[in-house]
Simulated assay, not measured.
Amino acid sequence: MRVSPDFDAPDLAEKVEALHAYEINQLPFGVIRLDAGGKVDLYSTREATLSGWNGRPNIGLDFFTRVAPCMNTPAFKGALDAAVAEGRVDAEFVHIGDFADPYRAIRIRALSSADGGVWLFLLRELS
């Protein structure tokens, strides 16, 4: 694998878009890509493992109603929708909880993808 892109890199989305799916699955943080309509078109195996989602289907599902309805809030989805409407997504959020641990803090970077969708990069403290 090429050098792993840093979670805080300003050009993280561009670096990840240059990777093969296998390489994305090996990143030390979770990766989800949503299409322009909010449906999941990439859900890394690392994210599935870290979040506790595991082998459940997710590709083609609406992220905010079928995968992560807990993120369907004005603070998260509302801010994301506003950024998409402005034409550029570059935001960071802290979300509490996932399938594996409802009390775990997750740092989420949301960045525009080249195809008009949105990348979600999810970083959890590993202990």
Rank of each mutant, 00 (worst) to 15 (best):
V3R: 12
S4W: 11
D6K: 05
D6H: 11
D8K: 08
A9E: 01
A9G: 02
P10F: 07
D11T: 06
D11R: 11
L12P: 00
E17T: 08
E17K: 09
E17A: 14
E17N: 04
E17F: 02
L19T: 04
A21M: 12
E23S: 10
E23Q: 15
E23N: 09
I24F: 05
I24L: 14
N25I: 03
P28N: 14
P28R: 10
P28Q: 07
P28I: 05
F29D: 02
V31Y: 03
I32Q: 05
R33L: 12
R33P: 02
L34Q: 08
A36W: 03
G38A: 08
G38D: 01
V40F: 08
V40T: 09
D41G: 04
D41I: 06
L42I: 02
Y43M: 13
Y43D: 07
Y43I: 12
R46P: 00
A48E: 09
T49N: 11
S51E: 00
G52H: 07
N54R: 10
P57W: 07
I59T: 09
G60W: 06
L61Y: 07
D62M: 05
D62Q: 08
F63E: 00
F64Q: 02
T65F: 04
R66D: 12
V67L: 06
A68F: 09
A68T: 08
A68G: 02
A68E: 11
P69A: 02
C70K: 12
C70F: 13
M71C: 09
N72P: 00
T73G: 03
P74S: 11
P74D: 14
A75R: 13
F76E: 02
F76C: 03
F76Y: 15
K77Q: 14
K77G: 00
K77E: 12
G78M: 05
G78H: 10
G78N: 08
G78D: 03
A79Q: 15
L80D: 03
L80H: 10
L80M: 13
A83Q: 02
V84N: 08
A85P: 01
E86W: 02
E86K: 15
R88F: 12
R88D: 08
V89Q: 09
V89H: 04
E92M: 14
E92D: 12
F93G: 01
F93Y: 15
V94L: 13
I96S: 04
I96E: 10
I96C: 09
G97H: 06
G97T: 07
D98W: 13
D98I: 05
F99A: 14
A100P: 02
D101P: 01
Y103Q: 15
R107S: 11
I108W: 05
I108F: 09
R109E: 02
A110E: 00
A110W: 04
L111D: 06
L111N: 07
L111Q: 13
S112A: 09
S112I: 07
S113C: 09
S113F: 06
A114C: 05
A114D: 11
D115L: 07
D115T: 10
G116D: 01
G116W: 06
G116Y: 06
V118R: 11
V118Q: 09
W119D: 00
W119Y: 14
L120E: 00
L122N: 14
L123I: 04
L123D: 10
R124H: 14
E125S: 14
E125K: 15
E125W: 08
E125T: 12
L126R: 15
L126P: 07
L126D: 15
S127F: 11
S127I: 12
S127W: 13
S127Y: 13
